[in-house]
């Protein structure tokens, strides 16, 4: 039954790739990739159970955090076109964004 759950999540991941491919805006793609990452975490955990090696959970924990950081990094990059911009406090960020959009 664990194996069935594994296959079900894998099917879900394939469908999500479809959205990542056809997504009209960049945000749809990032959303799909983020959700894909969440599913990858679940698949890693279930794979550990199916193969009888729950050590895979360590990798899954790591992947949870990397998924979050990568999503934020992608969003930051596409907003500022650079990783060198410090994420500063609210008022400065608002004025900076205003400048950037103008």
């Amino acid at each position: 039954m664990t194996f069935a759950a594994l296959v079900a999540i894998l099917i879900g991941m394939c469908l999500l790739l479809l959205r990542a491919l056809i997504g009209p805006t960049m945000y749809d793609r990032v959303l799909a990739v983020n959700s894909f990452g969440t599913k990858t975490v679940l698949v890693l955990g279930l794979l550990g159970y199916v193969m009888g090696r729950p050590d895979f959970l360590d990798i899954a924990i790591l992947y949870t955090l990397i998924n979050f950081v990568s999503t934020i990094a992608i969003l930051k990059f596409f907003r500022y076109r650079s990783f060198q911009v410090p994420l500063v406090r609210r008022t400065d960020a608002a004025s900076r964004a205003g400048d950037g959009n103008a």
Binding site: M1, L16, L31
Partner: peptide, 27 residues
Amino acid sequence: GATCLLGALLCIVGTIGVLRFPDFYTR
């Protein structure tokens, strides 16, 4: 196992929603 399977099916439901909904915020 049953709980895992239920969760996996819910994952598929969420994916179907991501494919069906009309704009980014609803997805």
